[in-house]
């Protein structure tokens, strides 16, 4: 069987989530191709071609693809699927936006957020905020799958796949890109960061969130996250949200500050290697998943933590 992976990228770099999705694809088949769709694909295709185990890189260039328009991806990928048995996309906001559209056009189910490939037809995926794992067997001839990247190891480099251009569809008639505001940050990307520092509702204001959480994240060289409660209250932007309906992260170190540990937040971080919780409520559910819990008011504990980190040279 042949498998197509749709690359996740930021216009200049192929993201790590692509390498992880290739690992999931290689569990299905050894014939794995990558599709790089962007406004300009040259540098991206060269990076994708180096991923070990990849047979071929397909490139398609258009403004609408560069803007990530789902209608354009549907028009590009559906005809390509004549030559593939499965298409895999990382379950990023972009992957979630385009993949179901492709599935519906192919008249097949989408198998969402896959965390394990059991065999070519059988997959494991989390449901109910990760409180249950569902093993499903697909009867569809073609599989449309989104992959939870955090659980797969990234495929290494060392490949030398050939690159082949395919023609891009015309611009979709009913959708116009107006603009985007991407947060420019020197911090690592939340989805792939080794260390994440997250703040919750206890912060009480956006100023406090900014003053407490961000310096600690910077001291640790980590990314900043937030609970849904903190995002809901307007203390942090939505793209910081870690949880069932936000981002799923699995860093080496996750530091939860003033986060109670609602079900929906735990869904987004409980696969982290080491979890630290700082909360003044000793009964907060976050302590049930924390490897190291510190029962303290963050207003006291975070400055002390900053000081101790300085002492060890951070």
């Amino acid at each position: 069987m042949a498998v197509l992976v749709i690359a996740d990228h930021d216009d200049t770099t192929v993201r790590d989530s692509t390498h992880k999705t290739v690992t999931a694809a290689l569990a299905l088949s050894s014939d794995v191709d990558i599709l790089v769709a962007a406004a300009k694909t040259g540098a991206l295709a060269a990076q994708a071609a180096k991923i070990a185990g990849v047979r071929k890189v397909l490139t398609a260039e258009s403004a609408a693809l560069g803007q990530g328009l789902a209608e354009a991806f549907e028009a590009l990928v559906v005809p390509l699927m004549a030559g593939y048995d499965a298409v895999l996309t990382p379950a990023t906001s972009q992957g979630k936006n385009v993949s179901p559209r492709i599935a519906a056009k192919l008249d097949v189910a989408q198998i969402s957020d896959v965390i394990q490939v059991v065999d070519a037809n059988t997959f494991v995926r989390p449901i109910y905020a990760g409180n249950a794992l569902e093993t499903v067997q697909s009867s569809d001839a073609k599989k449309v799958i989104t992959v939870r990247p955090t659980v797969f190891k990234p495929a290494g480099d060392g490949g030398s796949a050939k690159i082949e251009a395919v023609s891009a569809p015309g611009a979709p008639a009913g959708t116009k890109f107006v603009g985007q505001e991407l947060v420019k940050s020197a911090r690592p990307d939340l989805g792939g960061a080794k260390i994440v520092v997250s703040g919750g509702r206890a912060m009480g204001s956006a100023e406090e969130f900014h003053k407490v959480i961000e310096p600690l994240a910077d001291k640790l060289g980590g990314a900043v996250g937030a609970s849904r409660a903190a995002v809901d209250a307007g203390y942090a932007p939505n793209d910081y949200q870690v949880g069932q309906t936000g981002k799923v992260v699995a860093p080496d170190l996750y530091v939860a500050i003033g986060i109670s540990g609602a079900i929906q937040h735990l869904a987004g971080m409980k696969d982290s290697k080491v979890i630290v919780a700082i909360n003044k409520d000793p009964d907060a559910p976050i302590f049930q998943v924390a490897d190291y819990g510190l029962v303290a008011d963050y207003k006291v504990a975070v400055p002390e933590l900053m000081e101790e980190l300085t002492k060890i040279g951070k």
Partner: peptide, 13 residues
């Protein structure tokens, strides 16, 4: 739209 890394604005007919 809320997208990874920020916001995107689309106009749909």
């Amino acid at each position: 739209r809320e997208v990874d890394g920020g916001l995107q604005t689309l106009e749909v007919t």
